[in-house]
Each structure stands twice: as structure tokens, then as C-alpha cells.
């Protein structure tokens, strides 16, 4: 089963070149039932990545380009009275899909953002007082622009907490870029990819993630990381228990990707940055990433006293 995942990752790497780490993280995020926030400039291959993921995991895929005039109904859907059948008919919005690429989410108004984020959290949409479950699996890849431009509404911190991970793809390396330039259109290539896993298999993998063993010592390590983020004076505010749960879940998914049935401290360390960087704000000048590195270095992996 994990080999199928491995094949899927290899397949995606063939399309999104030189970003294997990010692809693995994106897959781990999917397996951990989280949502992914990609912070990047346009044209870095976000859409290609989302598309390729949807193809290899045979997920139903929609893309929504967020704009400032968007309303919640444009995402969630709306009930329309059909004069022919003389009945109200629900027209489900683009959110009713398995993989949603929410492009430039920070261009939408907070209200619209809130509607999507609520749907992400609840995994259901309530229209006219009737709750409709979203399809399973439900995976949102949201992107946002790092450069604050006019007419953007940055996501509030409480909303950012809803994303399990935040990653950025970044510019490709020189070789990758050459390969990229000399090859055919990546997005076209993504469209023709073959599925590697069925939805049912994917769901099974997701169940498997929960069964990955996290020993008492490992949980202790995670807790000490959380504790230090709160008491260490590195951040304005420490990590929430939800962040801790997310960290552990992401580490489990990462362990599964590595083909193990237990979590090791490496797993935690790998996912620590992606899981926590959007939830923390360094208190002393430097970048959040540097503070997270400090956090990592301050906490011994195995208790010493």
C-alpha cells in the first residue's frame, strides 16, 4: 500500500520538478486529513501540484479563484427555486468536491474566507438550515500571496489554525528550471496522469495513519516542544493544544510515508516547521522560521533530567 503512495509521489515529482519534499508534505497533509496552505508567488506550480495530486489519488478536483467580489454562496452553493419543477433546488457550490484548490484565498472578503474555513473545519455545509456533508476525503489546498498587495484580506490567525500545514514551493533550482523549460507543458502533463490509488485505498491509508504508534516518550517529546514554545520566550504566543494534535497527526502521516508503523523524533522534526510556522509569530525580531529552528534546538529529543 505504501508502495502505491510512493509511486504516486514519484509520479507527481515527475510533473512538479525538484519539489519532492513539498510533495511529500502535501501528501502527508492529505493523509492526516488536514488542509494545506501554500504561500507563494503566482506561477510556482501550485495549480500543477494540486492537479497532479488530484489525478494520482483519483480525487474529484475543482479550482476556485478567489476575488474580492465573491460571496459565500459562490463557494458553498445556493438553493434556487426552479419554476419548472416548482421546487427549490440546491445548486451545490464548488466546495462539494474532494480536492479544492482555493487560489489566492486572501483576495476574498473575510466573510467568504470564513465560509470556506468553516466548511473545512466542519466538513459539512449548512444551507437553509440543512446540513450537507462534504465528500470524503475532503482536501483543501489554499494559496495565498506573500506580498501584501492592495485589496487583500490577510487570514486572521485563528483561521490560519485550520490549516494543518503551510508550505511554500519557492523558485526551482537552475537544473530543475532547465528541465522545466525544455519539457512540455506541465499542466497538460498533469491532466494525462494515471491514477495510482483509488479513493477507497486512500481512505484506508487515512485510517492507517491513526493507528501509527506514538510511544509515551515521543508524546513526551511533542509535549516538551509545545511547552517550550509557550515558556521559552521565543514566540508571542505558544502553540495551542490543537497545534499539538496536528503536529502529532502530521508526524504519524510522515511515518506512514516512510513505511513505518511508529513515529520517530525525526518525523516530528520534519513536520514541525510546516505545521507550526503559520501558527507562531517570533517575538524577537528574527523570522519565524529561525525561531522555530531555535525551538527545535532547545528541546532535547530524549529526556536528560
Amino acid at each position: 500500500m505504501t508502495t502505491a503512495i510512493g509511486r504516486a509521489i514519484t509520479a507527481v515529482s515527475g510533473v512538479v520538478l525538484g519539489k519532492e519534499e513539498q510533495i511529500r508534505l502535501a501528501v502527508a497533509c492529505l493523509l492526516a486529513r488536514g488542509h494545506l496552505l501554500i504561500e507563494d508567488l503566482p506561477g510556482m506550480g501550485k495549480t500543477t501540484l494540486a492537479h497532479a495530486l488530484a489525478r494520482v489519488f483519483s480525487l474529484e478536483y475543482r479550482r476556485v479563484q478567489f476575488t474580492s467580489d465573491m460571496l459565500p454562496a459562490d463557494i458553498l452553493g445556493v438553493s434556487i427555486f426552479d419554476p419548472d419543477s416548482r421546487e427549490f433546488q440546491l445548486r451545490p457550490g464548488p466546495v462539494f468536491t474532494q480536492l479544492l484548490l482555493a487560489d489566492e484565498i486572501n483576495r476574498a472578503t473575510p466573510k467568504t474566507q470564513g465560509a470556506l474555513l468553516e466548511a473545512m473545519e466542519e466538513r459539512q455545509v449548512t444551507l437553509d438550515g440543512v446540513s450537507r456533508p462534504l465528500p470524503e476525503p475532503f482536501y483543501v489546498i489554499a494559496t495565498q500571496n506573500p506580498v501584501t498587495q492592495a485589496g487583500t484580506f490577510p487570514l486572521p490567525e485563528s483561521q490560519l489554525d485550520r490549516f494543518l500545514m503551510r508550505i511554500s514551493l519557492g523558485y526551482p533550482s537552475a537544473e530543475t528550471e532547465i528541465a522545466l523549460l525544455s519539457g512540455s507543458d506541465r499542466r497538460q502533463q498533469a491532466l494525462t496522469m494515471k491514477p495510482q490509488l483509488s479513493t477507497a485505498e486512500l481512505m484506508q491509508m487515512m485510517l492507517l495513519v491513526e493507528k501509527i504508534h506514538a510511544s509515551a516518550d515521543l508524546i513526551d517529546y511533542v509535549q516538551r516542544l509545545l511547552g517550550y514554545s509557550r515558556d521559552g520566550g521565543l514566540f508571542v504566543a505558544g502553540l495551542s493544544p490543537r497545534a499539538g494534535l496536528g503536529l502529532l497527526r502530521a508526524a504519524r502521516a510522515w511515518a506512514l510515508l516512510a513505511g513505518r508503523d511508529y513515529v520517530t523524533p525525526e518525523d516530528v522534526q520534519v513536520v514541525l516547521g510546516p505545521v507550526t510556522s503559520h501558527r507562531l509569530q517570533g517575538s524577537a525580531g528574527g523570522t519565524t522560521a529561525a525561531s522555530i529552528q531555535q525551538l527545535l534546538e532547545a528541546v532535547p529529543v530524549v529526556r536528560r533530567s
Binding site: R86, E87, F88, D128, G129, V130
Partner: peptide, 12 residues
Amino acid sequence: DSLRLVDWKSYA
């Protein structure tokens, strides 16, 4: 009134 309680059949 909640749409849930509307008697759609009689409306039809």
C-alpha cells in the same frame, strides 16, 4: 418559518 416545515406537496 423554516423551509423544512413548508408543506411542499400542497404547494405543488
